[in-house]
Write a protein that binds this DNA or RNA. Structure first.
Length: 481
RNA sequence: CGGGGCGUGGCGCAGUCCGGUAGCGCACCUGCUUUGGGAGCAGGGGGUCCCCGGUUCGAAUCCGGGCGCCCCGACCA
């Protein structure tokens, strides 16, 4: 039991713990190019499960997938004024190709609003073509000075949805719908319950009228912006001339939305559920839900045979189960390895169990060994996985609420909370950006969002946290990733 | 981009002050014994000591220059 085999604990150094988990659970690795990452099979399998669930949800809400190109003419990015200003510092620009300097520089997409708009302009003529609801799964690139695996890399994977609507109300409503989709996905699949809400002017997407976000609380009580949904109004359609003829025969500009979640969610997953042993995966997105480990399979292979048979019974119930039949490492090593990788449930089967028809079942949370009949283990597995999923959500929800401070009225109190435990602080706000800036400087916390109705406090302070004006709305403050 | 630290087998490090044939732990390979919480023994493979130049009989070590990475701050999903 060498000390070097253990992870740094979360309490000792949360950020070292995070980095180690990524390497030790074989989620990702650094690439030769600074700031980009290689996602390894275990990490990518998690992403694929997330993609599948999200993609289904997008299809159910009427979207179709497309693929837009990696390279965008510089002039496109420059068309929308705020959009350029927001993205300019992070652009990677291609100036040469085929051994020659290009006449017009190309930008490696930081996001695809501009291209999709230029295409929609071609495809849309009448209100009958609307709404047009597209999505793409792609990589994007935003040059970052300071990077962290999954949380902030120069290149990352995401999905970006782009929709065009015939009127403002419908587009706004769709922005909210997709925010809701994200929230459901995070709660139901990732067991990572966010607080949703509207972004302040200073925090919104470059080029948006309104941005909404999902803010999840990590175990160090910092906020992770885990998904965003934007109402873009007619900003882009005016610049890219996306017009349609209305039912009344009038020519109008379209109203559009965009929304995205990225591989950053995997970082969120780690920091939401991981413990000092390693990753803990919600069953719904775990690449392997049940790992079956044969123990003391020395003589005739009968233990392995039984393990395989139990595994295939689990599989026939739709459970993602695997047998770890490697004969060159000890069972103990396997236990640690699969725990590190976050597999929810482990079954151990040895000669004793062969005799008795039983099996040892261990859950990733709690870790207590249960000895139960094999048939029971198989039969109860689906409900055990469901319970595991529910437990994770409940734990995350409880943690979020326990570290939310409502009704705070003094900046000093925010500062104190940030210096000690951290967490989400709810206060009143007049809407004055100076107060926002001031609090950021004094406390290190940023304005995460104006919480959606159901996250709002029963009693909202009547005065702005800045102390001078009346409060116009409730806002959430937190240190953020 | 500002402040700090570090570059030595795959990974983590010692060696650098005080120059003398490159070492440890983990990992890896072979064999035997093991296997219900990170196995033991025996044998074995693997290093342009970040790069370039200089000093020296001799440089991982000293000097000069360059490059890269990490951490902390300002900007960001």
């Amino acid at each position: 039991m060498g000390k070097n085999k253990q992870l740094t604990s979360r309490s000792e150094d949360f950020s070292a713990w995070y980095n180690e988990i990524i390497f030790r659970a074989e989620l990702a690795d650094h690439s030769p190019v600074k700031g980009s990452m290689v996602i390894r099979p275990w990490g990518y399998a998690i992403w694929e499960n997330m993609q599948r669930a999200l993609d289904d949800m997008f299809k159910q809400t009427g979207h179709q997938n497309v693929y837009l190109p990696l390279l965008i003419p510089m002039s496109f990015i420059e068309k929308e004024k705020e959009h350029v200003e927001g993205f300019k510092p992070e652009l990677v620009v291609v100036t040469h190709a085929g051994g020659k300097e290009l006449e017009e520089a190309l930008v490696v997409r930081p996001t695809s609003e501009t291209v999709v708009m230029s295409m929609m302009g071609k495809w849309i003529q009448s209100y009958r073509d609307l709404p047009m609801k597209l999505n793409q799964w792609a990589n994007v690139m935003r040059w970052e000075l300071r990077t962290r695996l999954f949380l902030r890399t120069s290149e990352f994977l995401w999905q970006e949805g782009h929709t065009m609507h015939a009127n403002s109300e419908e587009a706004e409503e769709h922005t909210q719908t997709m925010l809701g989709v994200y929230r459901c996905f995070m709660e139901d699949w990732m067991a990572m319950p966010p607080v949703t809400g509207l972004k302040s002017e200073s925090e919104k997407f470059a080029g948006a009228i309104k941005s909404y976000s999902c803010e999840a609380m990590m175990q160090d009580n910092k906020a992770l912006q885990a998904g965003t949904s934007h109402f873009l109004g007619q900003n882009f359609s005016r610049q890219f001339d996306v017009r349609f003829q209305s039912a009344k025969g009038k020519e109008e500009y379209g109203w559009n939305t965009s929304w995205g979640v990225s591989t950053r969610l995997i970082g969120g997953l780690i920091m939401t559920h991981g413990d000092d042993m390693g990753l803990i995966l919600p069953p719904k997105i775990a690449p392997i839900q049940v790992i079956v480990i044969p123990v003391k399979d020395m003589e005739n292979g009968s233990v392995l045979e039984k393990a395989n048979s139990i595994c295939s019974q689990l599989k026939s119930q739709g459970i993602r189960a695997e047998v770890d039949g490697r004969d060159f490492i000890n069972p103990g090593s396997k236990f640690y390895e699969w725990e590190r990788k976050g597999v929810p449930i482990r079954l151990e089967i040895g000669p004793r169990d062969l005799e008795s028809g039983q099996v040892v079942l261990v859950q990733r949370i709690g870790g207590k060994k249960e000895i139960i009949p094999q048939a029971e283990a198989v039969a109860t597995m689906p409900s055990r996985l469901e319970q595991f999923q529910d437990l994770l959500l409940e734990m995350a929800m409880t943690r979020r609420e326990n570290n939310s401070h409502r009704g705070v009225t003094e900046i000093g109190e925010i500062k104190e909370i940030m210096e000690q435990s951290g967490g989400f602080v709810y206060t009143g706000w007049s809407g004055d950006p100076e107060v926002e800036q001031n609090i950021k400087e004094l406390t290190g916390a940023t304005l995460r969002c104006l919480p959606s109705e159901e996250f709002q406090s029963a009693k909202i302070p009547t005065d702005c946290i800045g102390g001078k004006e009346k409060s116009e709305m409730e806002v959430v403050w937190a240190k953020a990733y």
